[in-house]
Design a protein around this nucleic acid. Structure first.
Lengths: 209, 209
DNA sequence: CGTACTTTTGAATCGCATCAAATCTGGTGG
DNA sequence: CCACCAGATTTGATGCGATTCAAAAGTACG
């Protein structure tokens, strides 16, 4: 359950986002790895050694509250995890695999090294972080809405461009992302569908009007 | 009501955070400016020309929902505004002054220029953005909590180190930050005080136990 | 075919938003 | 200095919406 699989040098062809972001020399020292459902990717307080990029699966940043209950800081299905810890001397939260996942990891010392000598790479990194800031701010705005209905509509309107919204993972995960109970989400979606504002088809939600 | 005051070259001595972050040549081309309560600092869709740093006052990032109601993406009393738009070709939201405010602004082309040639500056910028990402993620975690009580406790426990929490601005603004009604916040604080978990003294909240 | 999980509906309860009103506060001008 | 006003703080009452618990129906998978 908590075993890490073997590491292998990665195949850059299949990860365009990384290939565009990282200098090729850096890409060459990145490794592919896998992690099993339930395993811990890194631990709060430890010194960051690797940057992670999720290619398949789902990784969650987790903090444990005083009561022992777990709070999700971020959930990542495709993209960076802990990109904000790159220059930190310690991780600020735990990261667990919610399902079996595939990752690419890059050694942080080398990353820092390149950032400090390759200003163009730094610029790209800044751009990536800026996009992340905007994304999280949007999520903030969403969670500040008082009703389930409003949060759903906000997600449909801003989570995706165009008239079709793709549910990431499952409706239950979507409920967690909206910080509402899954029952409330199901009811909210059903209400919107009855009103003719959306049409659900499997993983897709068609937005009308 | 919407008049901008004159600009002046800034006095770097009084802003240590900026002085540590920016190269001195960049600091030299920054300007001080003031903005009146209610005035708009920048507008969604426009091309970013200036980076802003709030020294006194309060600036809010604002998006208008479909119903015309306003949603707050960020509120800044001291620190950067729109730091995530530095490399964007357009602002992603509006920014208004909630009260008369003092700002320092730096020209974005010069900032970009320096970022692309001064890797150490880029590193510091990355560090600043990373801290912002962590801060907003924390706020996310807070808003995901279902009850007013839990949000208050989360803010008290994480919003500040140590046993004393300083209310930023006013309790009403604190309520908005927690996305609860001010009545609910007052009641929540009163309940916590009656339970002996906190003691309120003006702007300070002493956390017991 | 059974087991585990998801989806859905139902009912009870609780907390919060909202509306209302009273008190308190600081600031302004007469 | 006091009268006044605008806003903040506080308390109360009501209704709605969401959580929670429960249970049924649907679905995937070995």
């Amino acid at each position: 359950m908590t075993r890490m699989y073997d590491n292998n040098h990665m195949n850059s062809y299949i990860h365009p986002e990384l290939a565009e972001l990282l200098p090729s020399e850096l890409l060459a020292v990145c490794l592919e790895s896998k992690i099993s459902k339930g395993a811990r990717l890194f631990t709060e307080g430890k010194t960051p050694k690797w940057m992670f990029y999720v290619t398949h699966g789902e990784i969650a940043l987790i903090r444990n509250g005083v009561d022992g209950e777990t709070a999700y800081l971020q959930r990542q299905r495709r993209g960076f995890v802990a990109e904000a810890s790159l220059l930190s001397d310690r991780y600020h939260c735990n990261a667990d695999a919610l399902i079996n996942s595939s990752l690419i990891k890059g050694p942080i010392p080398a990353l820092k090294d390149w950032l400090s000598k390759d200003a163009q790479f730094s610029l790209r990194w800044i751009k990536m972080l800026s996009a992340e800031v905007r994304r999280i701010r949007m999520q903030n705005e969403r969670l500040a809405l008082p009703t389930v209905r409003a949060r759903i509509l906000h997600l449909l309107n801003t989570g995706n461009q165009g008239t079709v919204f793709q549910v990431q993972g499952s409706p239950k995960l979507m409920a967690q992302e909206l910080a509402v109970s899954h029952e409330a989400l199901y009811r909210g979606l059903a209400a919107l569908e009855k009103e003719g504002k959306i049409i659900r088809q499997d993983q897709l939600i068609r937005i009308l009007d």
